[in-house]
């Protein structure tokens, strides 16, 4: 039974939605993803999470690792199993290594995709793989998640969606293009995944609401610059990776309360410790726990 006042951990909903999207992509959209590759990513991510948790001496929580692994299954394309396994290792490892003031510096999936695309000749991302047929289904599922979980970081999702849409529409208007063009660009499953599951990662967004708005606007602006001025693909991924180092800066300029994942046992038992509540090892300090 869910205790009164507790919130459902948004990660559980995310895991369910990502798993559904993966099943839909593989079965209905003919994704270039082999079950063996998904298995390798999932097994490696969970294994590395367990190993890192042991080394760090903290409780193992597979939820975040599962989200990263499912995101990699959805986005990462390679013909080499070892590359898929290496991607999962780097993604989970980056959470433990690349940290500033107790926060992840990069979204794990984002940084590993950008790194592997930049440094190897074996990886690609297919932004067109979703088409626009199931767009509204995606949207409803993702928006539903925000409602169901009352995600406190939905503001960054909405701010990014608004800023990016405004920029795409403004550019098309300036060029005199029909509205069908910006609408087609925005009706993209890859954009939805990015907006709801990547930029919204509470571990890598600024602590304050103002900071998150600024961050979302910058990411949208840089993404448009990369896509429409540098003409590079996967502009959203590159933009987030480039802008992520701004987050510690924004946290200094616009400080706010640090986020921690809510838990089904969110309200501490009398005499209990906050550590037991934490969905992840970052919530060991009481001040990091959202109550």
């Amino acid at each position: 039974m869910i205790p009164r006042g507790a919130r459902l951990d948004p990660r559980l909903y995310q895991i369910a939605v990502l798993a559904l999207l993966l099943a839909y992509g593989a079965l209905a959209l003919d994704f270039d993803v082999r079950p063996l590759q998904c298995g390798a990513i999932l097994a490696t991510a969970l294994g590395v999470q367990l190993a890192c948790a042991r080394v760090a001496g903290i409780r193992n929580d597979p939820r975040s690792a599962l989200i990263s692994a499912l995101s990699l299954c959805l986005l990462l394309r390679t013909n080499d199993l070892w590359v898929a396994a290496a991607a999962a290792t780097i993604a989970i490892g980056s959470k433990f290594v690349l940290r500033v003031r107790g926060k992840h510096l990069f979204n794990p999936t984002n940084i590993v995709l950008v790194l592997l695309i930049a440094c190897t000749d074996r990886v690609w991302v297919s932004p067109g793989q979703w088409g626009s047929a199931a767009y509204f289904g995606f949207l409803v599922a993702c928006l539903g998640g925000l409602v169901v979980t009352r995600a406190s970081r939905a503001d960054v999702t909405f701010a990014f969606a608004a800023a990016y849409s405004a920029l795409v529409v403004a550019r098309s208007s300036w060029l005199g293009e029909p509205m069908a063009i910006p609408v087609h660009r925005l009706e993209n499953g890859a954009l939805i995944i990015f907006t709801f599951f990547m930029i919204s990662d509470p571990r890598t967004t600024p602590d304050s609401r103002a900071g998150r708005f600024v961050f979302a606007a910058i990411v949208a602006l840089v993404a448009c610059y990369i896509q429409f001025r540098l003409y590079r693909t996967n502009a959203l991924l590159w933009s987030l990776a480039c802008c992520a180092p701004l987050v510690p800066l924004l946290d200094v300029v616009l400080p706010g309360r640090r986020y921690a994942w809510p838990s089904l046992t969110a309200a501490p038992a009398p005499g209990g410790s906050y550590e037991a509540l934490a969905g992840s090892h970052f919530a060991r300090r009481p001040d990091l726990v959202v109550r």
């Binding site: 270039d32 394309r77 390679t78 013909n79 190897t120 000749d121 074996r122 990886v123 690609w124 297919s126 293009e177 029909p178 069908a180 063009i181 609408v183 087609h184 660009r185 693909t233």
Partner: peptide
């Protein structure tokens, strides 16, 4: 046609040699 392909075709080269 214009109804189904409103914008120009954009391509990428992948690492897939299957």
């Amino acid at each position: 046609d214009a109804a189904h392909f409103p914008e120009d075709l954009v391509f990428q080269q992948t690492a897939d040699r299957t």
